[in-house]
Design a protein around this nucleic acid. Structure first.
Lengths: 228, 228
DNA sequence: CATTTAATAGACATCGTGTCTAACAATTTC
DNA sequence: GAAATTGTTAGACACGATGTCTATTAAATG
């Protein structure tokens, strides 16, 4: 299972691929030190600015100015601020994925990918709050969701029964949407509950359902069975 | 219950409020016929252009050109294309809300707000597909979600037991996120199932939960009960 | 009809973009 | 270390879109 944080289909760097960890070794045709420095500066500048002004308000001018680089330099590396953002998010997601890999963490029960998400969101709460709120990029929200959905399919579904009533991607999308919207709510409301509790709430809701979570008698649940 | 489609907190028109139905009568200080005509043209032009190029790519120039209006005229009515979009969405949502109001539709079982959403999405599938995809406005997705969440609280929760394990807005957000992401998936995949089935799937998932929907024995569900 | 109000063309300053060039500076390679 | 390679840069450029303003024309209202 290649767990590279591939956020969609965008070709990210026109020069050579990322310095993004865990493609370790392989072909990686050694980057000029200046390239690494420049891209790092651009990434840091973008992140800082996104937190300050929100993604939409950030211009390429801002970024290069903050990074102390010539504006032309930016276009030597990225097409857009969007391309830079996507590329930058890779590093962030790499962190998340790293915490996902070990199935069991030293005696402690593996709280699973859901907890990892809440936890990771908490550690990068400023960034995520901006990205998931209205201030984020138009496409980023959906892209994060797609990413989570894809991970869900990979990591979750193999453990489930083979016979399913719904297509995998419907389920994956449903779960990803629910998880993301819960996360967004959580962040925007100042994380009023610990990540552990959010994890449990999410599981309760998704696995047992609203009815159970509220103690409703299943026979009262308004699901018209009709014919279908 | 005032069911005016109020999409958030933006002040929409600086002149006088909307011509948006069901504030019927009241103070509504009769709009000049030209104003009505102009705003209608702008709305239609925006909608058409959004479908053609995606929201982000549409400029104020485009809009006024398509509408055969002077560009300056636009700014007499709206601050932004965003403000125009929000205002335009009101009409669309008004339609949806109208189908929501009657609790029972002539002998036929009321399929509920969820079906209404899928149905409405289907009827405006082009528009919604654009709005919910990456091509939509940054803020619009979240705003639609907030709107649905708010409606959920109003229409759904009163029928539920008063004792709940989760805060209302957490639940509302969870449901809205799940519903919207399902809808988006549905639209982007060419609506492979009828709205009725999507409604039922959604209910099954949210009320009974994933576990039930897959025939998993509840005792196998990995919810750590620990202390809490 | 007289009054009020909206729409308009066109000009304007401003800003951000994306590209390009000719120098310049850092680095890699041998 | 010297030479060749490659990355960075300042500055300029044309472009497109924004938002505002003015004087004029046109339409709706009572």
């Amino acid at each position: 299972m290649k767990s590279t944080s591939n956020l969609g289909t965008l070709s990210v760097n026109r020069h050579t691929s990322t310095y993004s960890s865990h493609l370790k070794g392989k072909v990686m045709p050694k980057l000029d030190r200046r390239i690494i420095r420049t891209r790092g500066l651009l990434r840091d500048a973008l992140m800082a600015l996104v937190l300050e002004k929100g993604y939409e308000a950030v211009t390429v001018q801002d970024i290069t100015e903050r990074a102390n680089l010539g504006r032309a330099t930016f276009y030597l590396h990225y097409k857009d601020k969007e391309e830079l953002l996507v590329s930058s998010l890779e590093s962030v997601f790499d962190e998340l994925v790293k915490t996902l890999d070990p199935p069991v963490v030293a005696g402690k029960l593996n709280d699973g990918p859901v907890f990892a998400v809440f936890n990771h969101a908490q550690e990068n709460s400023d960034l995520y709050r901006v990205l998931l709120s209205g201030e984020g990029s138009a496409k980023i929200y959906r892209r994060i969701q797609d990413y989570i959905a894809k991970e869900a399919v990979n990591r979750f579904f193999p453990a489930l029964p083979k016979e399913r009533l719904f297509p995998d991607d419907l389920l994956a999308n449903y779960l990803a949407g629910a998880l993301l919207s819960l996360t967004a709510w959580w962040l925007e409301n100042g994380m009023p509950y610990p990540a552990e509790q959010m994890t449990q709430s999410f599981r309760q809701l998704t696995f047992l359902g609203l009815g159970n979570a509220m103690g409703i008698d299943p026979s009262n649940i308004p699901i018209p069975t009709e014919d279908e």
